[in-house]
Amino acid sequence: MTRNIHPLLIAGTVLVFIFLVGPLVIVLGSALSDTTYLTFPPQGLSLRWFENIFQIDAFRRTIVTSLQIALLSTTIALIIGIPAAYALNRHRIQLPGWLSTLFILPVLVPELVLGFSLLKNLAVQFNSPIYISLLFGHALIVLPYVIRVISASLASFDFSIEEAAISLGSPPLKTFFTILLPNVRSGVIAAFILAFITSINDVSISIFLTGPGLSTLPIQLLAHMEQFFDPTVASVSVLLMLLTVAVMAIVERTLGLTFLAK
């Protein structure tokens, strides 16, 4: 492998990575500032803005809602996505070709359109609780991640092990839980964690499916930013970045981060 790369290209790459990481360092710095306005580099170091997050009722409530929605929608997506991924890998011949296209529709259709359509044609039309639309909207947008990650794990699974279990008399459900699931465990963990962070960070679906009484953390952040310019938003951002670090550590241990570069 030749490693002679033009020095200008290397300099450019260094600049690109400063561009990528710099703004997030600035957010971190601003969150630690002791001032009542946003500034960088921070003037005085303090954690008071982190305390402030939990003193604002709207942040406390939306953090709980966001965690709830992320946990529930991810669980729904796993429960229906794992069998779907299995079917797509194991029974592909019986299934029509358009099925895999159907399962990537949630990435193809603009999220704003999906959010608006759920509001208009589900929540308002049938007078159903907005929470249901928000929950299933999130389950939909994380479903393609689940199917993709589980499919990748199934691709390296030796199905003859499963056949051996079945031919030795193991019932299908028992085979699923004792043979298949343990073998794709790391895929399930990675799918869970990627889906979870996608749901936590979502704006485009949630923007239409929140309102008085029900909001998620990113939507609350947007609302707060329009009124205040204090370091609270920066400190919430730092909490979200800590979550990102945790997610990356788990993905690295399960799939390997290079999976994301595929």
Binding site: P23, V27, S30, P218, L221, S237, M248
Partner: peptide, 16 residues
Amino acid sequence: FPLLTGVVVRSFAWLI
């Protein structure tokens, strides 16, 4: 890291 950090946080950085 930036890819997994939410769009609100990343846009907020540019606001600062």
